[in-house]
């Protein structure tokens, strides 16, 4: 019984050590045709989304996606397009995380990839953009 407990503790410590190591091994810059395509599409779309980020209408969520934060900050005629852009961006972001995890040979890393990207998007956000902090509250950068 004692040895079983010891083994469990050892496995737990090993898991703690292994998890970040495993993620650290993920190549977030890896390229596949799909990733290249996604990056290109997202880059083009960014031009349309940038104004909404700057006005605070759209913000960066803590789970690596984007969300409509304050629709009233966007002109009425642009709100439909804004919602479409957000939906398309989120679809592509999810696909990007899936593709990166897949390209690394570890589809099960998708959540970790997404989490790492979430921090990266927020750290690279321009001043004045809105993002969700760790507790989910909207914060202006």
């Amino acid at each position: 019984m004692k040895s079983l407990t010891r083994l469990s503790s050892w496995l737990f410590l090993f898991a703690l050590w292994w998890s970040p190591l495993a993620l650290a091994a993920a190549d977030l810059e890896i390229n596949t045709p799909a990733i290249t395509s996604l990056k290109n599409v997202m880059q083009q779309r960014h031009g349309d989304l940038a104004g909404f980020y700057a006005s605070g209408a759209v913000g960066l969520t803590r789970d690596g996606l984007v969300a409509v934060r304050d629709p009233a900050a966007a002109p009425l005629a642009q709100r439909q397009a804004m919602n479409s852009l957000v939906a398309a961006e989120n679809q592509d972001r999810k696909a990007l995380y899936r593709e990166i995890a897949h390209a690394n040979g570890h589809p099960e890393w998708e959540d970790e990839v997404r989490s790492t990207f979430a921090q990266r998007w927020i750290s690279k956000a321009a001043s004045g953009w809105w993002y969700q902090n760790a507790s989910g509250a909207w914060t202006k950068k």
Partner: peptide, 9 residues
């Protein structure tokens, strides 16, 4: 997968 998306697989 994702036939109509930008990253079909």
């Amino acid at each position: 997968l994702d036939v109509l998306g930008h990253a079909p697989r």
